[in-house]
Simulated scan of single mutants.
Amino acid sequence: MDEISFNDIIEINGILEDKSLNFKVHLRDGCGGSGQTLWIEPLGNCACEGHYEEMYQVLEEFWGAKGKVIKYWDNKMQFALERKKNGTV
């Protein structure tokens, strides 16, 4: 598993802000080899309502350009990244 950098987190949060999507992505570093995971923070219920699909699309395009696919869990508010293999997971 490739490491997710703080610069990646800063970049994706900047893209979300530029697109007026009121979400923030946070990095959680696992201990004992459990790997890194990410979680999505909605920045206010009303401000995010109706924008979840657009936010997911931005995340998937951003990580996809880096050769990764997102594996969501917990109501799509937490996720991990996997490397694409030959154009697929």
Rank of each mutant, 00 (worst) to 15 (best):
C48T: 09
D18S: 06
T37P: 04
E17M: 12
N13Y: 03
F62S: 05
K84Q: 14
N13W: 01
V58S: 01
P42Q: 08
C46M: 10
I4D: 15
C46V: 06
E17Q: 10
I4F: 06
F6D: 03
I10Q: 09
K71D: 10
D2M: 07
E49Q: 13
G50D: 00
I15L: 15
K68I: 14
D18F: 07
E17P: 04
D18V: 04
L43K: 04
V25M: 14
E17N: 12
G35W: 01
V58C: 03
N7W: 06
L59K: 02
C31Y: 00
I9V: 12
A80R: 00
G87M: 06
L81P: 09
F6A: 04
I70P: 00
C48H: 08
S20A: 13
C31H: 02
I10S: 08
I15C: 11
G35F: 01
K19Y: 10
N45H: 13
K68R: 10
E17S: 13
L27P: 06
L27Q: 10
M1Y: 04
G30R: 01
M1G: 15
G32V: 07
D18C: 13
D2C: 09
Q78K: 15
K66D: 15
V69A: 14
A47G: 02
E61I: 05
Y56K: 00
G50W: 00
I12G: 02
Y72M: 06
M1W: 05
V69Y: 12
A80D: 06
L16R: 03
E17F: 08
F23D: 01
E82Y: 10
I4W: 09
F6H: 07
N75F: 11
Q57P: 02
G35S: 05
E11A: 12
D29R: 05
G30H: 00
I40A: 06
A65N: 13
P42G: 11
D8R: 07
H51S: 02
I70T: 05
K71H: 07
L59S: 06
G67P: 09
G67V: 05
N7I: 09
K76H: 04
I4C: 12
L16P: 04
I10R: 08
D18Y: 09
F79Y: 13
G33S: 04
L38V: 12
I9E: 11
A65Q: 12
F23G: 01
K66Y: 14
I40D: 00
E41M: 03
N86T: 04
H51I: 00
R28D: 15
D18K: 08
F6V: 15
W63Y: 15
D8L: 14
K66A: 03
E54V: 08
G35A: 06
N86G: 11
T88F: 14
N45I: 13
W39Q: 11
E82D: 10
Y56Q: 03
E11K: 10
R83G: 05
A80E: 06
I70Q: 01
W73I: 09
G67T: 05
S5I: 09
Y52M: 00
I15S: 03
H26C: 13
L43E: 03
N22Q: 05
G30P: 00
D2A: 13
G32Y: 02
G33C: 03
L16G: 05
G32L: 09
K68Q: 14
